Amino acid sequence: MTKKHKPIVHGPGQGEHNSAFGLNRYFRVTPEHTGGAFCIFEEEIEEGAGPPLHIHHTEQEVFTVLSGSVKFHCDGEETVAGPGTTALIPAGARHAFRGIGPGISRVLVMLVAGKGEGFFRDVETEGLSPKNGMPRINEIAAEYSVEFVGPPID
């Protein structure tokens, strides 16, 4: 008998919610769905918000801007991306991003390979933020081959 497959389908704002680092995030396709090959999540970035400068040592990060505008910083170069734009951040690149709006920008993010999603789960579970727990966040990040190397970008 042939195994019947079912699609994984999530619309905007659907999927498991996560708010690590104060950003609304919705896990749409998880590493469990893909055998660890990749994960996809939607992220809402408030104007002026974004993570500290960091490196994913083993994962590539692909962003597609759905609405608003986002500034990407990658190894010293900056680009502003609007709706429909896709940006690839290679593994090992020092990078960060910042919502420049207007208002909330929405991006679809794919991590390849997909284990980095667990970082966001762990940070939220422990109730951490850069203001109250950066030493512990760095410990968790190391478990996912992520390293924070500087402040957020302007």
Rank of each mutant, 00 (worst) to 15 (best):
K3F: 00
K4A: 12
H5V: 12
K6W: 01
K6N: 12
P7R: 12
P12H: 09
E16D: 13
E16A: 13
H17I: 07
H17N: 08
S19D: 14
A20Y: 01
F21L: 13
G22R: 09
R25S: 14
R28N: 11
R28A: 12
R28K: 15
R28I: 09
G35T: 00
F38P: 03
C39G: 14
E42Y: 03
E44F: 13
E44R: 11
E47H: 06
I55T: 10
H56N: 06
T58W: 05
Q60V: 12
E61S: 08
V62E: 12
V65H: 08
L66T: 06
L66Y: 00
S67I: 01
S67C: 00
S69K: 15
V70S: 04
V70F: 04
V70L: 05
E77W: 05
E77M: 11
T79N: 10
V80F: 05
G82W: 08
I89Y: 04
A91R: 15
A91L: 10
G92L: 00
A96R: 02
A96G: 14
G99A: 01
G99K: 02
G101T: 02
G101F: 11
G101D: 04
S105G: 08
M110A: 14
L111V: 07
A113S: 13
G114Y: 03
G116D: 11
E117Y: 13
F120N: 12
D122Q: 15
G127S: 00
L128E: 08
N132S: 05
G133C: 07
M134F: 10
P135M: 11
R136V: 15
I140K: 07
A141E: 00
A142M: 05
Y144E: 06
S145N: 13
S145Y: 11
F148S: 05
F148D: 00
V149D: 01
V149L: 03
P151I: 00
P151G: 13
I153L: 00
